[in-house]
Amino acid sequence: MNDVAQKLGGALVGGEVNVGTVERWASMFGGGYLAGAGIKKGGAGGALMGLVGAILLHRGATGHCNVYTALGVDTSSTGARPADGAMPATGAAAGVRLEASITVNRMAEELYAYWRDFTNAPSYMDRIISVRALDDRRSLWTAEGPRGAAIEWMSDLTEDVPNRRIAWHSLPGSDLPNRGSVEFTPGRLGETTVRHTLEFDPPGGMVGEAIARVMQGMTKEMVQADLRRFKTLMEAGTTVGAGAPAGSSA
């Protein structure tokens, strides 16, 4: 344990900001998960997970990465860039694609109409605080981020097939770059299969792939949980822990 403490102390040394905004959010998100998992696991393995989690949390909170400093890398501006005289970083993480589906005992037309009004999203999406419609295509989303901080992004509708499919993507400058879609496939006896797909671009750099793997496992469960709340909301008219009852707007 003393070795772990020494490593932690050596890693948590402050410095100038050299980590981009999206990468900082991802570091805090992944770090919080690993820290909590390490505490539950216990033992040497848990201590190691806790160490990695603490380093990522510190990286996100301070915006400083010692590895980046050693390599002369700075991603704090838009896109990764090498410091003067340094070689550019390679091996940026690939995008993460998440997909979940559920069968709802309601007609596709009803489900589409409720989802298409994006201001309803806080009633079934757990971390969404509010959605403000700006026009027929664009909406401003606010979500709860690490440590209660607010994350905002502008979403633009890219496809709208009434009663069948909705697709969107975030606009440049968003805190959380993402794109996604939802499809409504009618079944028998008034049932509808709802398939929700979400894609986001994790940070590049030296730890991007590791953070992406952690976030993928967590976020897939979040998407599935949102669909379960959506099902309960549409079938029973109410849900627990995700905002207002059916028929209301945020």
Results as ranks from 00 to 15, higher is better:
Ala149Glu: 14
Ala149Asn: 13
Ala150Met: 13
Ala150His: 15
Ile151His: 00
Ile151Gln: 06
Ile151Thr: 05
Met154Val: 15
Met154Lys: 12
Leu157Gln: 12
Glu159Ile: 09
Glu159Ser: 12
Asp160Lys: 00
Asp160Ala: 09
Asp160Thr: 05
Asp160Tyr: 00
Val161Phe: 10
Asn163Cys: 10
Asn163Phe: 11
Arg165Leu: 14
Trp168Asp: 03
Ser170Val: 03
Ser170Phe: 03
Leu171Lys: 10
Leu171Cys: 11
Pro172Trp: 04
Asp175Met: 08
Asn178Leu: 07
Arg179Cys: 08
Arg179His: 14
Ser181Glu: 08
Ser181Thr: 07
Ser181Trp: 06
Phe184Trp: 02
Thr185Gln: 12
Thr185His: 09
Pro186Gly: 05
Pro186Arg: 02
Pro186Ile: 03
Pro186Tyr: 07
Gly190Lys: 07
Gly190Asn: 08
Gly190His: 07
Glu191Tyr: 12
Val194Cys: 06
His196Val: 06
Leu198Asn: 02
Leu198Ser: 05
Glu199Ile: 11
Phe200Ala: 04
Phe200Gly: 04
Pro203Val: 04
Gly205Val: 04
Gly205Gln: 02
Met206Glu: 14
Val207His: 06
Gly208Ser: 04
Glu209Asn: 06
Ala210Ile: 13
Ala210Gln: 13
Ile211Val: 15
Ala212Thr: 03
Arg213Val: 08
Val214Ser: 03
Val214Pro: 00
Val214Leu: 05
Gly217Arg: 04
Met218Trp: 09
Thr219Ala: 12
Lys220Gln: 15
Glu221Ala: 15
Glu221Phe: 12
Met222Arg: 06
Met222Gly: 09
Ala225Ser: 12
Ala225Gly: 09
Leu227Lys: 01
Leu227Ile: 07
Leu227Met: 07
Arg229Gly: 02
Phe230Val: 06
Lys231Phe: 00
Thr232Ser: 11
Thr232Ala: 13
Thr232Asp: 13
Glu235Asn: 09
Glu235Leu: 07
Glu235Gln: 10
Ala236Tyr: 11
Gly237Tyr: 03
